[in-house]
Each structure stands twice: as C-alpha cells, then as structure tokens.
C-alpha cells in the first residue's frame, strides 16, 4: 500500500433519482465518500439503500443525476473507457458456450491482448482463485462457488487495479461463503487491488473490510463510515474476538439508526 494514499473513488454530494411512472425514486442522495488506493471498502445496508446503485455509478452503468464523482481522477465514463475496473456481478454471468478459460479470455480478447499474453494471464488468474486445472471445463460442470470464483478470475485478468464486487457471494451457502471470503482476503493481499464490495451480511462486511460504509434507504444515503481496527492478516477465527464483535455491533447500530429494520 502507498504511504500517501491517493483517492481511487471520490464522491461528493452524489445523488441519483430514477424517474418512474410512480414518481421519482431517490436511489442515492447526498453521498460523500472517498475510497483510497488499497482500501477494502464494504457497502452494507438493506435492499433499496442504493449500495448496488452506488457501485453501478462508479462503473458507469448508471449516471448520477446530482453531485460529483471521480474514478481514478476521471469521470466514470472515462474510467470505464480506459478499462480501469473489473466488475463482479451477483451472478457469475459466465457465457455458457465458452469454457472457463475462454470466459476469462473474453475481456482480454475485447481489449486486444495477444494470444500469448492471454494464455499467461488465464493461467495466473486461475491460480489466483484456486481453479487451476478447470480451464477446459464448461460453466455448468462447476459448482456455484467455483463459477463465482471463475467470474472473479475474469475480472482480475486485465490490468485494472479497482475491483467492484456486487454481492458476489450472496447466492452461496454459508460454508462456501466463509471459504471464499478467506480466499478473497488472500487475493486482495497478493494483488494489492482496491476493492469496493457490496454485501448485506454484517459478518462478511466486518471480516473483509478496512472500511465499512453503512447505508440506509429512502432516500439511499450513507449513515456511518466505520474504520476497521482489525489487523490485515485475518484468520476466520478473528470473528470470535471481542474486537470483531464490537465492530459488528457498531455496524448493527448504524443500520438500526438508519431505520433500516423498519417494516
């Protein structure tokens, strides 16, 4: 990590309003946030709090209707066009007619990497997500957890130092999720990427993050930003420590303060 942290994502007074037939929906309002290089930032909140929308604004999949946001010092559109982030969706979104290695090759083909470079990168990223030897399989031959790992490998294959992850483990069972969380932390340490991670699981957010952004709905806004005091090396057992439970408690308090448990 850099000693002088430079901001990767910087949002001020960011707002996004969807015009629907039932009137305007304020998905995001007045969001001020900075994500620094090397951070692992989690966005947590109930559904409708705008956490996914915020991620999609960073990725230029949605356009903000108010305020400012820069990604790597550029507008989100410029950042997308210079391919400065990898995006991991809720579902693996692997193309079923491509093998795993061909799926990882997809962004590389689009971005014009040479065949030799593609091969080396596929091998390296498959190893990063512990899927070496599965390159020739088709997606349906892999379990859900393995498919999601393949989709992470796909997002890591090209040179983007920002990784945007939208509830990537939301559809997986708890045992697989624990395992993948542990792997993700190791991967983060090895690649030194900046990660923005959307989740609705408190333990997941606390376990993974250097910062936790607590959000609440109607309108979607940031209610608390918690700096984690946990060390960088985190075994799964850290979740039993008082320190961990204290942060988890604060996250829960933040969610409650945002009235997110209403209804």
């Amino acid at each position: 990590m850099n000693n002088a942290p430079s901001s990767v994502v910087s949002a001020s007074k960011l707002g996004l309003t969807f015009e629907t037939s039932d009137g305007p929906v304020h998905a995001l309002s007045n969001v001020d946030l900075t994500v620094n290089r090397g951070d692992f930032v989690s966005f947590i909140g109930p559904s409708g709090c705008g956490k996914t929308t915020f991620l999609r604004v960073i990725a230029d999949l949605e356009k903000a209707t108010a305020g400012e946001i820069t990604v790597n010092g550029m507008t989100p559109e410029e950042a997308r066009k210079s391919r400065s982030y990898g995006y991991v969706f809720q579902a693996p979104a692997l193309y079923p007619w491509r093998t795993i290695e061909k799926n990882i090759a997809l962004p590389l083909e689009i971005m014009g990497y040479s065949a030799a470079d593609r091969k080396a990168r596929i091998e390296r990223t498959l190893d990063l997500v512990n899927l070496s030897g599965f390159g020739k399989k088709y997606p349906w031959q892999l379990s859900g957890g393995m498919q999601q790992r393949a989709s992470i490998a796909r997002a890591l294959a090209f040179d983007a130092d920002l990784l945007l992850m939208d509830e990537p483990f939301g559809a997986l069972d708890e045992i697989v999720r624990d395992h993948l969380n542990e792997q993700l932390l190791k991967l983060w340490a090895r690649t030194e990427k900046t990660i923005c991670f959307v989740t609705h699981s408190i333990p997941e957010a606390v376990y993974l993050s250097t910062r936790i952004v607590v959000m609440s709905p109607r309108p979607g806004r940031v209610t608390d930003v918690i700096e984690s005091t946990l060390p960088k090396g985190r075994p799964l057992e850290i979740r039993e420590t008082p320190e961990f439970l204290e942060i988890a408690h604060r996250v829960r308090e933040g969610l409650r303060a945002g009235h997110s448990y209403e209804e």
Partner: peptide, 29 residues
C-alpha cells in the same frame, strides 16, 4: 442475452460489433 451479460460487455467498453459477435450471435444459435 440477459442484462447482466450485456452489462458485462459494457464494463469492458466492448464495441457494438464485439458485443454482436461474442454475445448476441452465440446466444442466438
């Protein structure tokens, strides 16, 4: 193609031609 598959192409800043040949055509077979 599902929205998520199209969004993926968008995050790669894929051209219309690339999206056509690498996503729409194989999906239509």
């Amino acid at each position: 193609p599902e929205i998520i598959q199209l969004d993926l192409m968008r995050t790669y800043y894929a051209s219309g031609t690339q999206t056509f040949w690498k996503l729409r055509v194989p999906a239509s077979i």
